[in-house]
Design a protein around this nucleic acid. Structure first.
Lengths: 209, 209
DNA sequence: CAGAAAATGCCACTGAGTGGCGTTAGCTGT
DNA sequence: ACAGCTAACGCCACTCAGTGGCATTTTCTG
């Protein structure tokens, strides 16, 4: 990301890519996703529409760059993590470390991205698909590990639960305007994970306190 | 659904809607979702493209008719269900009863729909969005109930877990070609729900048996 | 500095989805 | 049975996302 000693060609490509994500987030936020055409976007960055589609598979994807950065890092952490105790805790840690590894300004971009998701069905759908793909990928990587079973329903479910906790944390944090920055998001994440044991044990009798 | 004593106009509308879903499922399965144009579909049913979009908001939605039927029924069951013991069990029952309420032939249509989801990203994304919407709706309805808190993280998570179990059951059942019909699907659902306590308690040490 | 390789720009095209409007078909009163 | 009403439909023109092809420019390599 911050490597300045890449081949010149790739540096240029990375710069246009970043310019596109920044302009897209700004335009989508100002005018709305549906009311911003790709022509407006590529005009603002001064590239051709063809170049846009060499960098992003769809209009939705450029709005979700912050998400893909996180998920990509998360999968690296899943590969690297050691599972000593509860698998659920290992995933909580992987999420926490992934958040810590995000670069300066990611929090603000992520917040803007989530705001777009909340009001634009198409972006929301793409975002959910990324979540699901990440879940599948994490499951596949864990299943290939020594000591784990690639068919284990329990493994699949625990990953789904971890991602659900993450999604709830992100949604709640975003809904309140992202208080406390990434540290605030970490807090929500801890709260959500802490609530998991109580949630599966929740009964009609103890629901109201 | 089976009410033959509707106004003639609405009966006609329902018939074209059904003709569209059937033809769509057939064409999409035969030629693939991406390689079937809407013009081909509406020609086969002999309606105008305009009429198609008065019945379905998008091309993806006509492929997901089986899903929407289930989710709509499920939300009715959520409203009607009584929560005596575990909330998780209540949702498992609601899912089971919803499946039982599906009409003849739904199982086959659902199987075809899931096969489409597996190979077509756009359909998959829409399907995930329906899941999520249903989760949100179920949460909102439960939160409005006496004895429940509309802000309770535990309630939100337990619904996410239930839907995750459902999704895994459906995916596993579909992946094996839908053995045993809807009864087979019910079995997978029971298995998935039964694995939930073990999954959150899963550790690196007991993962391999 | 020459030639390969990659990235870009331009152009024409397909296909999803929308708005407008005239026409048809089913529903209402008398 | 007939006239008026309204919902649904068909047709047409249009916008915009996304793709394939090809010529051109730009960077890397020897």
């Amino acid at each position: 990301m911050d490597l300045r000693e890449l081949p010149l060609r790739e540096r240029k490509k990375a710069r246009t890519r970043q310019a596109l994500t920044e302009a897209a987030l700004r335009l989508f936020t100002e005018k709305g996703f549906d009311h911003t055409t790709l022509d407006e976007l590529v005009d603002a960055v001064e590239v051709s529409k063809r170049t846009f589609f060499r960098n992003f598979p769809s209009k939705e994807d450029v709005a979700l760059a912050a998400d893909t950065e996180l998920w990509s890092t998360f999968l690296d952490e899943v590969d690297a993590m050691e599972v000593a105790g509860l698998v659920l805790d290992a995933f909580r840690t992987a999420l926490r470390v992934s958040l810590e590894r995000m670069d300066e300004g990611w929090g603000a971009r992520f917040l803007a991205t989530r705001a777009l998701c909340a009001v634009t069905p198409a972006v929301q759908a793409h975002s959910l698909r990324y979540c699901d793909q990440t879940t599948q990928a994490a499951f596949a990587r864990m299943g290939a590990r020594a000591g784990f079973d690639a068919e284990d329903v329990r493994l699949k479910l625990v990953i789904e639960v971890a991602i659900a906790a993450w999604r709830h944390a992100a949604l709640s944090w975003t809904g309140d305007g992202g208080p406390g920055g990434l540290a605030g998001l970490q807090e929500r994440l801890d709260t959500a994970f802490a609530a998991i044991p109580d949630s599966v044990a929740l009964t009609g009798a103890n629901a109201d306190r």
